[in-house]
């Protein structure tokens, strides 16, 4: 593993190794607190992000390393018209590893082609966000102990939600995984995910617009936000928006060991009352994100 551009760059074994390492770090962070001493992470954020950037920076500091970088393109040479390839080539001389977010799809791959140090894709537009997927996988692993035989409900904006697409790609490789895809018809999963992943690998899936009717079947409920701007007309949005807001009454038939995930930030799609429910895992998920990024940095720098 030299770079992480897409979750599909990692095979099942590599994902397992990262998860096991993240778990070890979580249990004994002191043992890893000096592993990256003398190393620098460059966070090249060509568009603003709060949690992903801070999570990467916290991860590097907790490994004893340092962080350099910028948090928006205006404060970088991109504002002067420098290409991604040139920026990354230069930063390769200053840092040992790069985490890069860019509004254009494929920019981190371009960076990886010219970099001499490992590149981590920290989100490229609506395309890939592999460290979010690793975070989701690590959370599922911690809650369920593995990935086989799970029924996973994905709810909300399944059309534009990149985290959902990557999660399906990652989970499709495990045994007897079943997906329940819950969304308004305007925001159903793209055809290419159905044809090139679900149907191609004979993965059982159901599409529905009714969250409550499938609740009792779910082991995992992965919520995403239904955004107003995705609808063609306001009336449809108003009609549907509350159907995809998780409230305590919708959980009445849910399993006792259901795990509720959300990539965050949340707006109103999960009622704050759910935060007190032991099945709510989304804040733990954000915490897990730091540990899996620590594991990833260690693996890419080969300093375990």
């Amino acid at each position: 593993m030299k770079n992480l551009i897409s979750i599909t760059d990692l095979d099942v074994k590599e994902i397992e190794e990262l998860i096991i390492l993240a778990d070890k770090i979580m249990k004994n962070p002191v043992a890893y607190s000096q592993k990256c001493q003398g190393k620098k992470l460059a966070t090249l954020f060509f568009e603003p992000s709060t949690r992903t950037r801070l999570s990467f920076e916290a991860a590097m500091y907790e490994l004893g390393g340092n962080v350099i970088g910028f948090s928006e393109s205006n404060s970088s040479s991109a504002a002067k018209g420098e290409s991604v390839a040139d920026t990354v080539k230069v930063i390769s001389y200053y840092a040992d590893i790069i985490a890069m977010r860019h509004p254009k799809e494929g920019a981190p791959l371009v960076g990886a082609m010219s970099a001499s140090v490992p590149i981590i894709n920290a989100g490229d537009g609506g395309h890939n966000h592999p460290t979010q997927t690793l975070t989701d996988l690590f959370t599922i692993y911690r809650e369920k102990g593995g990935f086989d035989n799970l029924t996973i409900g994905l709810c909300g904006d399944l059309k534009f939600g990149r985290t959902v697409h990557s999660l399906i790609l990652a989970l499709a490789r495990y045994k007897n995984v079943k997906f329940i895809l819950i969304s308004p018809w305007e925001l159903t999963i793209p055809d290419y995910i159905k044809h090139e992943v679900l149907k191609k690998y004979n993965i059982e899936y159901v599409e529905t617009s009714d969250l409550v009717s499938v609740m009792n079947a779910l082991d995992i409920l992965y919520m995403t936000r239904v955004q107003r701007e995705r609808f063609f007309n306001e009336a449809d949005y108003i009609r549907l928006k509350d159907s995809y807001v998780l409230t305590p009454n919708k959980l009445e038939n849910a399993k006792k060991d259901l795990s509720i995930l959300h990539p965050l930030p949340r707006v109103n799609e999960i009622s704050v009352e759910i935060d007190r429910d032991s099945r709510a895992c989304y804040f733990k998920q954000a915490q897990n994100g730091k540990y899996i990024r620590m594991a990833l940095i260690l693996k890419l720098l080969e300093v375990e």
Binding site: E105, G106, V110, G125
Partner: peptide, 27 residues
């Protein structure tokens, strides 16, 4: 939204992802 739309020097490279249906995708 592809990086090739703004960085003119990049090569346009497509990869065969589905042989049966002759589907190529931008790398």
């Amino acid at each position: 939204r592809c990086i090739t739309s703004t960085e003119q020097e990049l090569q346009h490279i497509f990869k065969l992802t589905d042989k049966e249906n002759r589907i190529y995708r931008c790398i």
